[in-house]
Design a protein around this nucleic acid. Structure first.
Lengths: 134, 134
DNA sequence: ATAACAGCTCAAGCGCACTTGAGGTCAAGA
DNA sequence: TCTTGACCTCAAGTGCGCTTGAGCTGTTAT
């Protein structure tokens, strides 16, 4: 397994050194070892960071991702009730999915409005979506 | 149109008075008027708050929702290039949607793993998802 | 030997979205 | 009239996820 410097991690993931140090500080992601004080990462860190980035975009906090990576997927697998956490998160994600889809529908509808008849258009949308109604 | 107190808004939406005052402070949502110093809201505020809540869940910042509510949907309709904003946001939402779906797939797969063969199961998933790989 | 450079630590700061707390006000009921 | 209670303002504090900056160290090239 290749060892890479903090700067190489940054170049390959876009995650800045300060963020990587922060992740380490909160126990989310630690370098494999140090050489002359400098962090050396195993290149599997790239996968982990991909998961972290995806997870963040999906609405996970770093703490939750830490739990997932270090307890559920990590060496100390099966910490207590992760089933529960995962199930809760799945539900949250489904709710979020629905919210995003509502907003998408609303915005695409707004985009389809005629620019000068925006006002009336909005009224119609408001009724359809039951979200607006100035 | 019925006028309701800040407390009634809270009861019907779950949005706390402190949050409502904060929304006002940042120009997102202002009460219709004051009576003896107290905020009185038109009950259409409930729709607006529904949109705000949905929007937040969908990844909008309050500033963006303010733009949407006050420029795009508000009296001063069509402020500059809101088309651009909305299009950018639509793309962001689609990305977010994909991320959530990835995480959902990963987590449901993990849930399906046999509890005592978790380790091997994870290895398999790691290959399938190309996200993990301890 | 020396200088340049990549990286280090530690403390402080930032933006967002609120919450909390102290102290004040206004209208209504006993 | 007095008190209660709902509401007010304003300043400060909170939690998250980092970033920034000052000052230091170990490695490498000249």
């Amino acid at each position: 397994m290749a060892e890479i410097s903090i700067n190489q991690v940054t170049q390959q993931t876009g995650v800045r050194p300060s963020a990587l140090r922060y992740y380490e500080e909160i126990g989310l992601l630690r370098p494999t070892r140090r050489r002359g004080g400098r962090r050396q990462y195993d290149d599997s860190v790239l996968q982990r960071l991909a998961l972290i980035q995806t997870g963040q975009q999906a609405g996970f906090t770093l703490a939750e991702l830490g739990l997932l990576l270090n307890r559920v997927l990590g060496a100390e697998s099966g910490g207590a009730d992760w089933h529960e956490l995962v199930e809760r998160k799945l539900k949250e994600m489904e709710a979020r999915l629905r919210h995003i889809e509502s907003m998408k529908r609303l915005l695409t509808d707004i985009m389809d409005c005629d620019d000068d008849s925006l006002a009336e258009c909005i009224v119609l949308l408001g009724q359809q979506h039951s979200l607006i109604q100035s």
